[in-house]
Amino acid sequence: MKQIIQCQLNGKPVELVVDVRQSLLEALRSHGLTGCKEGCGVGECGACTVLIDEVPVDSCITLAIRAEGRVIRTIEGESINGELSPVQQAYVDAGAVQCGFCTPGLVMKTTSYIEGLAQSAGGCCQSGSNGINRDDIRREHAGNLCRCTGYQTVVDAVEKSIQYYSGQK
């Protein structure tokens, strides 16, 4: 059964025709937003991470109809006018990208993480000053699997994201 849902997608109001059984991942991908990836389809890998009302979710196990009335952010909305977001730039600069299949999901997770940090610190987030260490970063990102990097450069990228984000503020 098809249903029309309305939501805000990367800053713009949209109407999507979705099958009621469809996952948000499938709905987004068939809407042309193929940046979110399926690595497992059952909530194990995080490759499909998008933000719903700023909360990172595995879109593969979220029904598309649950997006009704919500604010959705996907990787496609993160760079504006060709300029990378601080998190995207940090991933590039830290060399955290190899095959890149996990990258969109990770970037979305990190984005919500550092925006959350900034909010709780009253608009500023700084590694060290608010006590964020590499273990904290690892714990926060434990739901996103990457098979290429050993996570070393991904943790570096999150540290850099924090720096860049606070620099931008």
Partner: peptide, 9 residues
């Protein structure tokens, strides 16, 4: 391909 990959393109 770094930028293509972080933007999902």
């Amino acid at each position: 391909d770094a930028k293509a990959k972080v933007t999902g393109r």
